[in-house]
């Protein structure tokens, strides 16, 4: 009997501690945009480490565009275990940067997140192989070993394969790729995923020449899915519509400046965190510019949501298995009105 008594008291203590913990946490849950010195605090969650992929925000922050709009912006870098959709949904961040295809996957599973602006107008995804393997067209991938980062990043490649009559399970081997490009350099895989603005540049920097490499571009292959977009949670935007429009206005200005002078933008980003190397950040800035402001794109329309591209992303996602049901493309999931307001 004594032990039961002891047990009860221990359970009680644990219960109390838990309650206390929960009490403390609920005390801080109310994360309203508090004012600091007249500025409203906003946090932006990046998809990955600080790099020129996100140069627009860094340039806008450095040039004081956010302050001019009354915003104190905190930029949270991403990381290996950070998922922007979850961070925004948790309330750790207010606004997130992610790939549209990934966002759609979350939305389809009931997450109350809204796509509000499309920063990259084109897909930056490539499938790179050494010229010596002779992979020129997607059909050449038959029987080869192809790597992807998975976790949602594999669907453009699936689309590419299926669109060219290849079965992803039977006709070739798909393996996971780590953060490095070593598997390709080491000839452990025949073709590897690479972003135009990042991994492809790293391959060139590692001493390979452009003539040593073949690349298959998802845009050319007609299977492009949309990548970097800005999204918010339904709850947050309901209370902060005006704040968000101001954030967008400042960000678009930052992106326009960054695209006008990618070298300076690369420097700005490099100075934030000394990430990788200055040359690499400038290389990335130049490549990112091509995605944000493709040839013939009006710089004043940065962030514009092309519903046709959104539709294509949704259709491809459904067709190749990322989504299990048809994406709902109403204003509850994709809402350009904040962007329209910001660019007025």
């Amino acid at each position: 009997m004594k032990s039961v008594k002891k047990l009860v008291s221990i359970v009680l203590i644990i219960g109390l501690v838990t309650m206390l913990g929960a009490g403390c946490s609920s005390g801080t849950t109310k994360k309203e945009s508090s004012s600091t010195g007249g500025l409203q605090k906003v946090t932006l969650q990046l998809k990955w480490l600080p790099q020129s992929q996100f140069m627009g925000y860094y340039v806008a922050k450095e040039k004081g565009y956010y302050e001019a709009e009354g915003i104190d912006l905190e930029i949270l870098p991403g990381g290996s275990d950070i998922i922007p959709e979850q961070q925004v949904s948790n309330g750790v961040a207010d606004i997130g940067v992610t790939w549209l295809s990934s966002l759609m996957k979350y939305q389809s599973q009931g997450w109350d997140l809204i796509d509000t602006a499309q920063i990259f107008q084109k897909s930056g995804m490539l499938l790179v192989s050494k010229a010596s393997t002779g992979i020129v067209t997607p059909a050449d991938l038959r029987g080869k070993k192809v790597s992807s980062w998975f976790g949602g990043n594999e669907y453009e490649i699936y689309a590419l394969l299926e669109a060219n009559g290849l079965n992803k399970d039977k006709d070739l081997t798909m393996v996971q790729q780590d953060y490095t490009m070593n598997q390709l350099i080491n000839n452990d895989v025949d073709a590897a995923s690479a972003m135009t603005y990042n991994e492809y540049g790293l391959l060139l920097e590692s001493g390979l020449k452009e003539s040593d490499l073949n690349k298959i571009d998802m845009n050319d292959a007609g299977v492009a899915m949309m990548e970097d977009c800005l999204f918010v949670s339904k709850d947050w935007i309901a209370d902060n519509e005006d704040l968000y429009v101001r954030f967008l206005r400042a960000s678009i200005k930052g992106w326009a400046d960054a695209c006008a002078d990618p070298t300076a933008a690369g420097k700005t980003v490099y100075n934030v965190d000394q990430s990788v190397s200055l040359d690499h950040q400038i290389y990335m800035a130049n490549e990112v510019k091509k995605l944000v402001e493709p040839a013939g794109f009006d710089a004043a329309k940065i962030g514009y949501i092309d519903m046709n591209a959104v539709q294509q992303t949704a259709d491809l996602s459904l067709k190749y298995g990322l989504l299990t049901q048809k994406a709902d493309l109403s204003t509850a999931t994709v809402n350009p009105k904040y962007w329209e307001e910001a660019t007025k």
Binding site: W111, G152, V175, Q183
Partner: peptide, 23 residues
Amino acid sequence: EYFASSTSGLGFAIKDSLRKGEM
């Protein structure tokens, strides 16, 4: 397995599903 060049194992499956929000 998060980083291994294979697509089997619990670690790969956990990472892959959690990233896609398939909780």
